[in-house]
Design a binder for these strands. Structure first.
Lengths: 204, 204
DNA sequence: TCCCTTCCCTAACAAGTGTTTGGTAGGTTA
DNA sequence: TAACCTACCAAACACTTGTTAGGGAAGGGA
C-alpha cells in the first residue's frame, strides 16, 4: 500500500526519488524550509517545478520523508547502543559517537531538524517528532541518572540542565560540520566527550 | 536624520514601536522569520497588516531593528568585560555569565539570530552579522588561546573545536530558556561553567 | 471652533507561492 | 509496428504574500 501517488497511476523510480530528496535536503538546510520554493529545488535538480510532483505529493511530503527517514536510521543506531547493556559512561560515549556518525551521514537532515522541528512538531503530520524527542530524552536522561547513581557522574549538577547541555553540544555541531573535513566523526566525538566528561580546564 | 519613514511626514512614537518590535520578535522566534506573515504580527498586536507600515518601512526592516539593537546591547556588555583586563579563565566566566544575561533579556532576538543569521548574513543589509561574528570569534578564541598559553586551559584539544563547543553550548540555551523559570541566568551560567571547565564526570 | 498630529482601517495591488492538468519525447515491451 | 511506461515540460490555476494609497476617528493646542 504505497503512501505516495496513490491516486495517480505512476511509479517513480526510488533511485531518482533519492537523488531529489538529497538535493531538496541541501536546499532546505541552506535556506530554511519556508524560504525554499519548489522552483528553487527543481532548479537545483535541473528540472521545472511541476515535474517534482511526478515524484512527490507535496513540498511538505518531501520534508516529511527527509526527516522521518533520518530519524528511522538514527534510532536504528541508538537502539543498538541502548540494547548493548553498557555502563552509564560507556553508553554516553557510544551515543555521542553514534550521533556524530549520523551527523556525518545526514548533515542536511540534522540541520533541518534543528531549525524546524520545534514548530513542525505542532502539526499532526509531524507528531512523530514529539515522540522521537520524548524517546530521546528518556534514553539520555535515564543514562545520566544511572551514572549519578553509580557515582560516575557528578551529583551536584541539575540533571535536566546537564541533559540539555550534553544534547545541545552534540547536535548543534551539525550547523558547522562539513563531511570530508579535517576531523573524522569519531575524532570529533572523542574530543567532545573529553570536554564534556573532563572539562576544558587544566586539572590542578 | 531618521532612518525610517523618511519620505512620509509622520513621527511614530518610540514607545509604541518598541511594543510592536517585541511582539514581532516573539512571533519570529516561535514560527521562524519566513513562516511569519505581517498579518500574523499585526494580529498579535491587535491591528491590521497595513497599519504596521505606519511604524516600519518593511518586514525586513523590523527584523533588522530586532537583530541590530540586540547586537548593540550585547557588545556593550562584552566590551566592558574584555576591557576589564581579567585573566583568561575569569574572562571566559564573565563572558558566559554576560551571555546568559543577554539570553534572559533578549530571548526572542537570540533565538531568531540562531535560526536565521547564517543565511541572512549573505545579504548586504545584514552584513553587520558577519562583522559581529568575526569580532565574536576573535574575542572568544583569543581568550582561549591566552588560557592555553597560561596553562589554565588544556592544550591537548583542538582549539577551534573548543571554541565552537563553548560558543554553541551557551547560545543554544536560548532555544529552551524561559525567563522567570526555575534558575536565574547567573545560576545557569554557574552550572554551565562548572560543566565546561571541569566536566560532568566524577573526578577519580 | 478649527487645525494638526497620531494612529489605525479599508481596500486594493502586483508579485510570488504550491499545485494541477494535459501533453510529449524517448525508451521498453508485446 | 503498436501499445505502453517513465520522466519530464508548458501553461495555467487559486491563493497568499508584502506593500501602498486614501481616508477617518480621536485628541490636544491655538
Amino acid at each position: 500500500m504505497p503512501k505516495q501517488n496513490d491516486s495517480k497511476n505512476v511509479t517513480p523510480s526510488p533511485a531518482r526519488r533519492g537523488e531529489l530528496l538529497a538535493t531538496a535536503a541541501e536546499v532546505f538546510a541552506a535556506q530554511g524550509y519556508n524560504a525554499t520554493t519548489v522552483r528553487k529545488i527543481a532548479d537545483e535538480a535541473g528540472m521545472l517545478a511541476g515535474s517534482l510532483y511526478y515524484h512527490f505529493d507535496s513540498k511538505e511530503g518531501i520534508l516529511d520523508e527527509i526527516l522521518s527517514s533520518f530519524l528511522d536510521e538514527l534510532w536504528q543506531g541508538y537502539d543498538e547502543v541502548l540494547a548493548a547493556g553498557l555502563g552509564p559512561r560507556e553508553t554516553i560515549e557510544a551515543l555521542v559517537t553514534e550521533s556524530f556518525r549520523e551527523i556525518d551521514r545526514h548533515r542536511a537532515a540534522v540541520a533541518i531538524y534543528q531549525k524546524e522541528s520545534r514548530h513542525l512538531a505542532q502539526q499532526e503530520r509531524f507528531a512523530y517528532l514529539v515522540e522521537s524527542q520524548q524517546k530521546f530524552e528518556k534514553a539520555w536522561l535515564g543514562t545520566l541518572e544511572r551514572g549519578v547513581a553509580a557515582q560516575v557522574f557528578r551529583s551536584d549538577l541539575d540533571i535536566r540542565l546537564t541533559y540539555r547541555f550534553v544534547r545541545d553540544t552534540v547536535w548543534v555541531a551539525a550547523s558547522w560540520y562539513r563531511p570530508g573535513g579535517q576531523h573524522s566523526p569519531e575524532e570529533i566525538a572523542r574530543q567532545y566527550l573529553s570536554m564534556v566528561l573532563d572539562g576544558i580546564a587544566v586539572r590542578t
